[in-house]
Design a protein around this nucleic acid. Structure first.
Length: 568
RNA sequence: CGGCCAGUAGCGCAGCCUGGUAGCGCACCUGGUUUGGGACCAGGGGGCCGCCGGUUCAAAUCCGGCCUGGCCGACCA
């Protein structure tokens, strides 16, 4: 490819909307442009990289025995209505109507479509196991799209679905996908880890996420040196002992003017937060639920959502709190709460003589004791894990890190096949429910993650295995006849040697071209200048670390081919 | 959806306070000089100043509403 005949609009300055390195660099290196909030178009160089990632994913899926199909992105409402997700997805789903006022969704995910396909066409035990996949666009009307392609409202996902006739078969299908995923992310040059995950709204049992390690990642992960790793949403926290001993004292209502936060109570009363009960009111499917936490602990909302067995979930408003507890925000407590569900964290059970809100303006209770003064419907793990919490596998202290979720695998079981009546006839001719797994990879996000892990202050640093061009030939002065002719010749010879090469034939100064090549992140740069050429020499510069070696002109093609992993 | 900030040329920004009909840098076009780390000189093109309304002789500037974007929070794969 000749630069003068390409469409690679690089940007010298950073667009103000971007904050994440990968987002900034994808804009600046001319990979993407935004068309609407959370929606991007792929420019030629970006599309080339996108297709490379897509190919890796496709190759490994096919190698694992999965069959590729392609679904329409518009899905008729009836399919989602069948599983109840037409309502459950809520405002996150893009919806549209045709001229007959029939409802459609732009598919946010395609379990229903695949399940429908399989139940209509595959009915015998002989047809299974089977795994189907597609690589296609998905739509989710995110509240807050951000980080460029990392969290868009339109994105490309590889989604695969396995159908088995036994639990054991599911485990085998699942294991194949896990192996394929490891190969995919390894080939993309990513430093990733597999973590235990919450199965979220999709439902199901065993679930793992593939996380790319990145400080900018949105997911928090607890990891242990023993190899244990879990998404914080799913990291189990054990009950902690109360710090104070002694028997229960009588309940006492005290005045706590202006002390509506844990901090102000600690300051005002000199009681440590670990001896307080914090009462958090949430709206769960139009009902109010109270979560009791120790004052120094944070509620993990995923755990709360699961404990409440709710689908819609969020903090209650000040009005809702007033209505449910009879008191204002900041003074809620478990004592005397009526007409709403109360769920407590495990550590609350161990509290003795704790401080809690009195559901009355500027009043608290001293010496609140669980069992005596209040009784929640259950004590469950609601706590947000912290660095230093014990590893559930080996007991050592875990540390926290951040990651980008690029893949998710799960053993769904029969949640979809049950409601959608996806069944097969076994060897005895009896009808049984299919057992499903589902497996997703965010293609755009995977590409962004590669940049997130492979860049420096000058630009992208593509790994050789995943790059837009292996090498760039840079003549320093295209008007210098010898320089230009050598560049043209090397360009042809390199292409003939199977090296994907960009010829920077622009009439620009050296520094200008170097800066652009470094921004684009092409792994090798062949620099041809008049002085070196007079000695029969050119330079090869590795993008990574910008290490330059001088080579003979007649050896450079072989050397570059070798470094690019191409045989001469 | 809440708090804060912002919307002026393709990109980055100034002008707004104190109203008088728009400017800088980069990029782009023409000519010339340059050519190993973002060149220089001269000339040039490009703007519904986010949108709608109000105040005023006059609005990028003041006022009101709306829309869009960013950060934080909430939510989410």
């Amino acid at each position: 490819m000749r630069f003068t005949q390409s469409f690679i609009p690089t940007l010298k300055e950073t667009p103000s909307e971007a904050t994440l390195p990968s987002h900034i660099l994808m804009l600046r290196a001319g990979l993407i442009r935004k068309t609407a909030s959370g929606m991007y178009l792929w420019l030629p160089l970006g599309l080339k990289m996108f297709k490379k990632v897509e190919s890796i994913v496709r190759e490994e899926m096919l190698a694992a025995g999965a069959h590729e199909i392609s679904c329409s992105i518009a899905v008729p409402a009836e399919l989602f209505q069948e599983t109840g997700r037409w309502e459950r997805f809520g405002e996150e789903m893009f919806r549209l109507q045709d001229r007959h006022k029939r409802d459609f969704a732009l598919g946010p995910t395609h379990e229903e479509v695949f399940t429908d396909l399989v139940r209509n066409h595959l009915t015998s035990w002989r047809d299974f196991p089977i795994t189907l996949f597609q690589i296609g666009r998905k739509y989710r009307d995110e509240i807050r799209p951000r980080f460029g392609v990392m969290r868009g409202r339109e994105f490309t996902m590889k989604d695969a679905y396995s159908f088995d006739t036994s639990e054991d078969g599911l485990r085998q299908s699942y294991a194949k996908m896990v192996e394929a995923y490891k190969r995919i992310f390894t080939r993309c040059g990513l430093d990733f880890t597999m973590v235990a995950a919450d199965s979220g709204t999709i439902g199901g049992d065993v679930s793992f996420e593939f996380m790319v390690k990145a400080a900018s990642g949105e997911a928090e992960i607890a990891t242990c040196e023993c190899g244990y790793a879990a998404n914080i949403e799913r990291f189990p926290c054990h009950a902690l002992e109360a710090s104070a001993a002694g028997g229960p004292e009588p309940l006492e209502k005290i005045s706590t003017p202006k002390m509506s936060t844990i901090e102000s109570l600690v300051e005002g009363l000199g009681i440590p937060a670990s001896r307080m009960v914090k009462t958090l009111l949430y709206r769960a499917d139009d009902k109010i639920v109270a979560f009791l936490m120790r004052g120094d602990h944070e509620l993990n909302e995923t755990k709360g959502l699961n404990a409440a067995k709710a689908t819609g979930f969020g903090p209650a408003s000040a009005e809702e709190i007033q209505k449910a507890t009879g008191g204002p925000v900041g003074f809620s407590g478990p004592v005397g709460l009526k007409g709403l569900r109360v769920i407590a964290d495990l550590s609350v059970k161990n509290l003795v003589n704790a401080l809690s809100g009195a559901n009355e303006s500027e009043m608290h209770y001293r010496n609140t004791n669980p069992g005596r003064d209040f009784e929640p419907e259950a004590y469950v793990d609601l706590r947000q894990g912290k660095a230093g919490d014990p590893c559930p596998q080996c007991g050592k202290a875990v540390s926290l890190m951040r990651g980008i979720e690029v893949g998710h695998v799960f053993q769904l079981g029969t949640v979809y096949s049950d409601v959608m009546q996806a069944r097969f006839l076994d060897k005895e001719g009896k009808s049984q429910t299919l057992i499903m797994g589902c497996y997703g990879i965010g293609v755009d996000r995977t590409l962004a993650s590669v940049i997130e892990q492979h860049h420096d202050e000058k630009g992208i640093v593509w790994p050789m295995e995943l790059c837009p061009f292996h090498a760039a030939v840079v003549p320093l002065n295209v008007k210098d006849k010898a320089v230009n002719e050598t560049a043209e010749r090397l360009y042809r010879e390199l292409e003939a040697a199977g090296v994907d090469v960009l010829l920077d034939d622009r009439d620009e100064r050296a520094g200008f071209k170097f800066t652009d090549m470094e921004l684009l992140g092409i792994p090798l740069r062949i620099t041809i200048g008049p002085k070196g050429l007079a000695k029969g020499e050119v330079e090869i510069t590795e993008r990574k670390g910008l290490v330059t070696t001088v080579v003979r002109v007649d050896e450079v093609v072989a050397e570059v081919a070798r470094r690019a992993g191409r045989r001469q």
